Computed example of a mutant assay.
Amino acid sequence: MSQNRATVTPIEDRNAWDATVEALGGHPLQLWGWGEVKAAHGWEVERLLVTDPEADLGAGPSTAYGAAEVAYRALPWPLRSLAYVSRGPVGDPARAADVLEAVAAHVKATRGSVALVVEPDWEAGSPGEQRLTGAGFRRTDSTILIPRTLILDLTLSEDELMAAMHRTTRANVRKNLRSELEFRRVATEAELEKILTIYRETAARAGFGIHSDQYYRDIWRFLGDNSPIVAAFDDGEPIAFVWIARSGSTAFELYGGVSPAGQKARANYGVKWAAFTEMKADGCTRYDLNGLLNDGISDFKKQFAQHEDQLTGTWELPLSPFYPVYARAMPLARKAVTRGRRAIKEALPAGRRAVEGAVPAARSLVAKVRSRSGR
């Protein structure tokens, strides 16, 4: 690691932290509220401001050239903990490697974590990658957030965004817009509970794991206005939704779901468009649909544009002499998780009764895995 002269200061004031994230164009997963969600579910969170040694800290957030919200997950002795920066650091990409070097030195000195894992919000091939390699970071395939994604440019006009869709997708969106469906943000806790019901039904139908309802209630509570849920309503009842985390510049899609009635109305098309336009109206300049895999959900996402985006992925910096132990153990743990997920999916076609019996166990397994990985 190079000699990086910097001052690292923990920040304990929410307003000051969020002002820094916004001033430096940060991702919504670096906002205070997202850290509070993780802190409520097994992580310890620290917000670190990075300044030049000569900077006057009393001058406020504008003196910072970088920042990182670091989440720590306890690991068995002697590994101590894993430090993780989700879609960070925040700041000028040209100095991002300097920020991460300073953060890594702080984590090593104060926490003794086995490794620092970072997933920057950078395009693949960014100049920052070379700097990370020079600082000792290693690219790893053990990703938490999927680097292959689709990011819409919300500075385009609505006509341009519509033109980029597949023809049948555009037709479905326009049909929804001409229908009697209402597209708006979820406004009450009672509506939130209905959204959670739709999400549980969607997960059972599609065969993916989810957290407990309390996890999603905590997102609603801790992120507040930075986590809008845009929904399609039919006669006052939600039938499809898109849940977003947003900062000043970036909208990041967290979750989505559709009820059987919503499927029949194809409301998942209109609600996606409503999410795009709502975030555009809020001033966001980019909309990240959050991950593309080789599955039906990803195929649906890809209907809304003719391109894909590849982010830099996951980088890991060893901080402890016990790192080789951690590096050997993690792939084995992830393989076990993959086998468990595959078994759950194979059980799904066995019939409605079998599915309903498997879903609670699937939720429990994957929620535990995601809580360990940070998702």
Score class of each variant (00 low, 15 high):
residue 224 G to W: 03
residue 233 F to A: 01
residue 45 V to A: 05
residue 328 R to K: 13
residue 135 A to C: 14
residue 202 T to W: 02
residue 128 G to D: 09
residue 68 A to Q: 01
residue 119 E to V: 03
residue 81 S to V: 08
residue 89 P to A: 07
residue 268 N to T: 11
residue 206 A to C: 06
residue 34 W to S: 05
residue 5 R to F: 01
residue 261 A to T: 03
residue 204 A to H: 01
residue 130 Q to I: 08
residue 212 S to H: 12
residue 210 I to S: 07
residue 356 E to D: 15
residue 97 A to G: 12
residue 254 L to H: 15
residue 227 S to H: 15
residue 110 T to V: 06
residue 350 A to L: 07
residue 15 N to G: 08
residue 274 A to V: 13
residue 140 T to I: 00
residue 149 T to L: 14
residue 278 E to L: 11
residue 207 G to Y: 05
residue 277 T to H: 06
residue 354 A to T: 04
residue 237 E to I: 03
residue 326 Y to N: 12
residue 308 E to S: 09
residue 371 S to I: 01
residue 329 A to C: 01
residue 123 E to S: 07
residue 286 R to M: 03
residue 22 E to F: 05
residue 242 V to G: 04
residue 287 Y to D: 05
residue 176 N to W: 14
residue 41 H to E: 15
residue 83 A to I: 02
residue 148 R to W: 02
residue 359 V to G: 04
residue 118 V to L: 15
residue 168 T to V: 13
residue 3 Q to T: 09
residue 270 G to W: 12
residue 219 I to Y: 15
residue 335 K to V: 14
residue 100 L to H: 10
residue 195 I to C: 10
residue 347 A to E: 06
residue 105 A to Y: 04
residue 47 R to N: 09
residue 172 N to E: 07
residue 166 H to Y: 04
residue 83 A to R: 02
residue 194 K to L: 10
residue 97 A to C: 08
residue 184 R to M: 08
residue 3 Q to P: 05
residue 85 V to K: 01
residue 370 R to E: 02
residue 96 A to D: 02
residue 93 P to E: 03
residue 327 A to Y: 06
residue 318 P to H: 11
residue 46 E to K: 12
residue 106 H to C: 08
residue 165 M to N: 03
residue 81 S to M: 09
residue 118 V to K: 14
residue 145 L to N: 13
residue 140 T to M: 11
residue 58 G to M: 05
residue 165 M to I: 00
residue 287 Y to N: 03
residue 213 D to S: 09
residue 264 K to D: 15
residue 324 P to L: 11
residue 230 V to H: 13
residue 163 A to I: 15
residue 102 A to Y: 00
residue 171 A to P: 02
residue 21 V to W: 04
residue 205 R to D: 05
residue 304 F to K: 04
residue 310 Q to G: 13
residue 320 S to I: 11
residue 20 T to N: 06
residue 168 T to W: 07
residue 314 T to M: 07
